[in-house]
Simulated scan of single mutants.
Amino acid sequence: MIKAIFFDYDGVLTTDKTGSLTTNRYLSKMAAVEYETVQKAFSKYNQELLVGKITHREIWDAVCGAMHCEIDFSLLEQAFLSTPANDAMLALARRLKPKYAIGIITDNKKDRIDCLRKSQDLDALFSPIIVSAEFGSGKDNAAVFECALRCLDLRPEESLFVDNNLDNLIAPKALGMSVIFHDDENNDVGKLAAQLTEEFLIRLD
């Protein structure tokens, strides 16, 4: 019996495939710098940001230097806030919450998720919220999923994880969790809801 549903954040609870896409697009627009230039400036630091080894503040001067322009650090928070919420998926999560534990497991930067937890009031709907930059490793490792399960004192077979990246479903599936791939390009939340009810006997009402 499924007792908890965990959601990935970007590409599932948002309509952008990744957080980097959201952030780079905003900074590109505001600084009038080519998107590819912004992407390249951040890319060498992305993995260390995701596991909490460095912070955006620590790399900011180097990133600006790589873009050959000065961008006020305050614009980074505005970039975080530009994240487009997937309202249909959030509505589904709210339907699930009365009967199930609802959590987030995300490969993400700590300052970004801290900002979005406040602006989108994520903690009112999701618990636990497991962030790779806080935990020190990502969804390529079973440990982050084991941490989420410990938070709720659940066995793997009592939980389900939804992600828009097939690679991120390998570790939880091997652990014994049920998994669902969400195609972020189609964003068919109705299809996902049907899978929950028909394949996993999850009650929505």
Score class of each variant (00 low, 15 high):
E134T: 13
K118R: 15
D123S: 14
L92Q: 02
R95L: 15
L92P: 04
I105T: 01
V144L: 15
Y100R: 04
E157S: 15
I113V: 15
E157W: 04
K118A: 14
K97V: 09
L81I: 05
K139V: 02
R94E: 12
G138D: 03
G103N: 10
L154F: 12
L160R: 09
A91G: 03
E157I: 07
S159K: 05
D121G: 04
I105W: 00
V144T: 09
K99W: 11
K118Q: 14
P156T: 09
A171L: 10
I102G: 13
A133H: 08
G136A: 13
P84W: 00
A79D: 08
I104Q: 03
L92W: 03
L152P: 01
I105S: 04
R150W: 07
I170K: 14
A85E: 07
D153W: 00
R94K: 15
A142Y: 01
K139C: 05
C151F: 08
K110Q: 14
P98N: 11
L125I: 15
G103A: 07
M177E: 06
D114L: 10
I104F: 04
G103R: 11
K173P: 03
I104E: 01
A148L: 12
A148Y: 05
L169E: 11
L166Q: 15
I129W: 06
D163A: 12
A88Q: 09
I130Q: 10
L169F: 09
A91Y: 00
F80S: 04
I104P: 03
N86H: 10
S137L: 13
K109P: 01
K173I: 00
S137H: 13
A85H: 02
K109H: 11
L160G: 07
L175I: 01
S127P: 00
L125W: 05
I170F: 10
F126E: 13
Y100I: 05
A142Q: 06
L149V: 06
C147K: 14
D163H: 11
L90D: 01
E157R: 05
N168L: 04
L152T: 03
